[in-house]
């Protein structure tokens, strides 16, 4: 008899969990902003090298007096990306009108440990990947909870690969599972991808809210794919 009760409780929990997972897997409905002067907090992951260049080109297109505060997430040891962020922010603040520039809060740079270093053995990957995930969860889930004025990590998170993108995605899904505010996930596949998706693209396509490609050949992949021509 006891076994039956335990089994029923277990089944109940399993059912609730799968219901919850089903709910968060449904597309999030977009709602029009009631007030278009209201700012939108923004975060972007800079995956170094060409990924950083493309991501920052996309960011440079945005209206900085609308998308703030801005959070730039870089990998540990990627000083070059940090420098490019400072250059972009400096050049953008020059073009903004002085009174707007002074009211717009500063941007922040967050450093995340790498999920897997280049040439790292496969055996050593799980611990570093877990460490990287813990750091993402800290920034995306825990830190916003601890702040007195509850503000989400960001309203939108822009991703374009590689590696750490997935851990940020997982952290975002933890927020969704717990019913906490979570960023909308926008993934933009690289301009360099003409016929086939990158590994990050393949992994993230089912997880993100908006999946954007830059070549018409890739649009055929699924109805969820968005194509607007070259974006960088």
């Amino acid at each position: 008899m006891d076994y039956l009760i335990v089994l029923l409780i277990f089944l109940g929990i399993a059912l609730l969990l799968s219901l919850r997972i089903y709910c968060i897997s449904l597309p999030k409905t977009k709602s029009k902003r009631p007030d278009s002067s209201e700012p939108c907090s923004f975060a972007v992951f800079l995956g170094s090298g060409g990924h950083t260049s493309e991501a920052l080109t996309l960011v440079s297109a945005l209206d900085f007096s609308r998308y703030y505060p801005r959070t730039y997430i870089i990998s540990e040891g990627d000083g070059l990306s940090a420098q490019k962020v400072r250059d972009l922010e400096a050049s953008k603040s020059k073009t903004m009108k002085a009174h707007i520039a002074s009211t717009v809060p500063q941007y922040t740079l967050i450093t995340i440990p790498r999920a897997r270093r280049v040439h790292q053995s496969l055996l050593a990957t799980p611990p570093t990947a877990l460490y990287s995930l813990a750091s993402c969860i800290y920034h995306v889930t825990i830190l916003p909870l601890m702040q007195t004025r509850s503000s989400p990590f960001a309203e939108v998170l822009l991703l374009n690969g590689p590696g750490t993108c997935l851990t940020l995605c997982i952290a975002t899904y933890i927020n969704r599972f717990l019913g906490l505010p979570s960023p909308r996930l926008v993934y933009v596949e690289s301009f360099a991808r003409v016929q086939s998706l990158s590994l990050s693209g393949k992994l993230l396509r089912p997880l993100v809210d908006r999946f954007v490609v830059q070549w018409p050949e890739l649009r055929k992949l699924s109805t969820k794919t968005d194509y607007r021509g070259w974006l960088v």
Binding site: S31, R33, L58, S60, D63, V186, V188, R210, D226, R228
Partner: peptide, 14 residues
């Protein structure tokens, strides 16, 4: 830049 700006403005309800 207008294409990505429009895309994100749309996504975020502007």
């Amino acid at each position: 830049g207008s294409k990505f700006r429009a895309l994100l403005d749309e996504e975020m309800g502007y």
